[in-house]
């Protein structure tokens, strides 16, 4: 089986909000709404730390980190359980999605979600630009919407937009059921947490903290959509040895992955995409 999940390396995250904004663009998210937000772990405002400024010569106790937060795509998703019309459901590949035609706007799911991941279109959604943006149809007034792991991209063999457009390579997407996938390897190797694990929601979003990972291993002179063939686990291991440091700009990230993985591990359903 396929079970998609996301690893976010908070040691790499630089809090730039590129994931939040590219999500809006890719998914036609209306003004006033975010499917994906970058929270500051620290003070009361974005980009402020906890603690107080050290007195001259004293050691600092200030602390700050970033926590990008969207739908956690829980295995045991409370939103799925409470939906009275089965509008919210879990796909075979583990992605939690909403059938907007079925949604009656009762917002039980919003009350049930402990991650505040969902938004509701109280008003007629306003798009900027007016005709909308991205590759996903707009949702109407009166429904709840949220992150889909960019399922329309995943079905094309592409990583979610937030993953591709992270300038710090802090987001890694892949199949948690595939033991050779980067997400699985990172979860095995690095210290990870999931949000509110005590709620029993079994989220499929993992946060690395402590030791920094090599980040997303996508390194190629080609865009994902241009890649002719995707390596199997065995030939990606071969690539580890050839990953050198010869100096080409495009090759320079070879040291920048755990096993020299040349590309992400979204299985190709078909080629294409507009990346």
């Amino acid at each position: 089986m396929t079970k998609y999940g996301l690893v976010i390396d908070q040691e790499r995250c630089i809090g730039c909000h590129a994931c939040a904004v590219t999500c809006k663009q890719e998914n036609n998210v209306p003004m006033g709404q975010f499917w994906n937000r970058v929270l500051t772990e620290g003070g009361d405002h974005i980009d402020t730390p906890s603690g107080t400024f050290p007195d001259p010569g004293e050691a600092s106790t200030l602390d700050m980190a970033y926590q990008p937060t969207a739908c956690q795509h829980c295995e045991n998703a409370p939103c799925v359980k409470v939906c009275p019309v089965n509008a919210t459901y879990t796909r075979d590949d583990g992605i939690v999605e909403i059938d907007y035609d079925k949604c009656i706007g009762c917002r039980y799911c919003m009350a049930a979600c402990p991650y505040n991941a969902r938004v509701f279109n109280w008003d007629e959604p306003e798009q900027m630009p007016e005709e909308g943006t991205g590759d996903v149809p707009a949702r109407p007034q009166g429904v709840v919407e949220k992150c889909t792991f960019c399922s329309h991209r995943v079905e094309e063999g592409l990583d979610p937009a937030c993953v591709v457009n992270c300038p710090a390579d802090a987001r890694i997407f892949g199949d948690l059921d595939d033991e050779t996938s980067t997400v699985t390897k990172y979860i095995d190797r690095y210290e990870t947490d999931r949000l509110l694990e005590d709620r029993g929601t079994d989220p499929k979003t993992y946060y690395i903290s402590g030791e920094m990972s090599p980040g997303r291993p996508q390194r190629s002179e080609k865009l994902e959509s241009e890649l002719d063939e995707r390596p199997s686990a065995s030939n990606s291991d071969d690539d580890a040895d050839s990953g050198g440091d010869e100096g080409g700009y495009g090759d320079s990230g070879a040291s920048h992955s755990l096993d020299g993985d040349p590309m992400p591990h979204v299985p190709a359903v078909k080629q294409g995409g507009d990346d």
Partner: peptide, 8 residues
């Protein structure tokens, strides 16, 4: 904007 990260 209160910010404990900026020097007095």
């Amino acid at each position: 904007k209160y910010n404990d990260g900026i020097k007095p």
